[in-house]
Amino acid sequence: MVQKTSADKYNVIFQTKAIDDKIYIKEQKGFYQSIRRYLSVGLMLLFIVTPFIKYQGNKRFYSMLKHRPKSSLLLFLPARFTDFYLPLYYGGLCLVLCRQ
């Protein structure tokens, strides 16, 4: 939990460290937690079975990556993560890394 002090409004930048401390979440039961759990199970099952779904005898959610170079746009995923990781720890690196 973040302990707030009267000086916090003057230390907004440095508060990030406190926010980034590990959060120990208490397990909670209740109406909304039940919805989350059942929905999560449903979504996971959907995630698993979707590649097997067939329509008119053939799979419909299948990208055939190795035969379709365009699907290799997935390669940009690591770049996306790098884009978010670096600013998380080092702030804006635009001055050093940006093509502009």
């Binding site: 909670q28 209740g30 937690q33």
Partner: peptide, 8 residues
Amino acid sequence: NCGLCIDA
């Protein structure tokens, strides 16, 4: 908006 605080 997970609603866990509502449950608690």
